[in-house]
């Protein structure tokens, strides 16, 4: 279905990827009627490929319903893909049983969007942070207690907070607890699902700083999911822009902002409410935006973005564009970059 070329970043060609995602598909069946007959499917993730290297930050940016969270959950082995493969550290996740997955889960941890929901409200912080250690049977009780203190220090929380319930902490502090829990097993990859979108901006900046510091110290790789392009401009090394389950553009962070190629990326950039006139240089010339993301169960024909696109031409509604490697490692899914169809 997808004809993506295998993607590697030339600079890192010698290094082996920590995570290799190939043609990943996650379809949800739509059932109808008394006998729950399948009448269609929602293509939440529809043929996504990317690599993630140790210590790297890869951002997936898109609007609500684009499938970015599903992608994250599939990568974290919380949902089973319906197609494609995920290879983590040389092991193919799809083929592993639940028991065999356990060591992999130690290496991949998730930080959720809403800490109020991702921390059990009826457990004290000390129990929440110690849980990964208990589940993986690491250390004695005393060692675990020590480790909890250490982790809380790592995320700049006063150690006394361990006796509290999550409800007794502010949103930013809760998110720090979630990060401490994710770090407990010394993972190699953190999946950050909108880690700051529930937080105030002044707190968001602090959490981002913390994540950057932890990455420096432990060489963590991050897969960050967000709707906010300006947040990842400086945070991420590479960015994939997603729309209706597919990457529309994938490039290094600098390339993407200096030279956005896909009209959808342009629209996203143009929609960001800015606070500084200097930011204007990254904004494309005035674009009149229209429409909203369509229902993913019945995507438009051809290029899924064509009904909202400001550069649409005739072929767009008929031909589903491939993922063209336009410049070195700047991939774009748009017919504008296809010599056969461009007008």
């Amino acid at each position: 279905m997808s004809e993506e070329p295998a993607m590697t970043t030339p600079v890192r060609e010698q290094e082996s990827a920590l995570l290799e995602v190939r043609d990943l598909e996650k379809y949800y069946p739509i059932t109808a009627g008394l006998f729950r007959r399948q009448v269609g499917s929602v293509r939440a993730v529809d043929g996504v490929s990317f690599d993630l290297y140790p210590g790297e930050t890869f951002a997936i940016v898109g609007e609500s319903g684009c499938g970015k969270t599903t992608l994250a959950k599939t990568v974290a082995a919380l949902q089973e893909p319906t197609g494609g493969s995920i290879v983590f550290d040389g092991r193919s996740i799809g083929e592993l049983s639940n028991r065999e997955l356990k060591p992999v889960r130690r290496q991949v941890q998730v930080v959720y969007q809403d800490p109020a929901s991702s921390l059990n409200p009826r457990k004290r912080i000390k129990a929440i942070v110690a849980e990964p250690l208990i589940v993986h049977d690491i250390g004695t009780k005393a060692e675990r207690r020590e480790r909890v203190d250490e982790l809380l220090e790592q995320v700049d929380l006063p150690v006394e907070y361990k006796y509290r319930y999550p409800g007794g902490l502010s949103g930013g502090q809760q998110q720090r607890v979630a990060i401490a829990r994710a770090l407990a097993l010394n993972p190699k990859l953190l999946v950050l699902d909108e880690p700051t979108s529930a937080l105030d901006v002044s707190v968001q900046a602090k959490v981002i700083k913390l994540l950057e510091r932890l990455q420096r110290e432990y060489g963590l790789a991050y897969l960050i999911i967000t709707h906010d392009l300006s947040l990842v401009k400086n945070f991420a090394d590479r960015i994939g822009v997603m729309y209706l389950g597919k990457f529309m553009e994938l490039a290094s962070s600098d390339d993407l902002f200096d030279n956005p190629m896909n009209p959808y990326t342009e629209q996203l950039l143009s929609a960001i409410p800015i606070v500084d006139d200097e930011e204007l240089k990254y904004k494309p010339a005035e674009i009149s935006l229209k429409g909203e993301a369509p229902d993913p169960s019945s995507p438009p024909s051809g290029c899924s973005f064509h009904p909202r696109c400001h550069k649409v031409f005739d072929a767009c509604s008929k031909i589903d564009p491939a993922f063209y490697d336009v410049e070195s490692d700047h991939h774009v899914r748009c017919l504008l970059y296809d010599d056969d169809h461009r007008e």
């Binding site: 130690r106 589940v135 097993l185």
Partner: peptide, 13 residues
């Protein structure tokens, strides 16, 4: 709720 999924993600039985 997310904390249940988070727990599954740890490999909790």
């Amino acid at each position: 709720q997310d904390f249940v999924e988070a727990s599954r993600g740890l490999g909790t039985g």
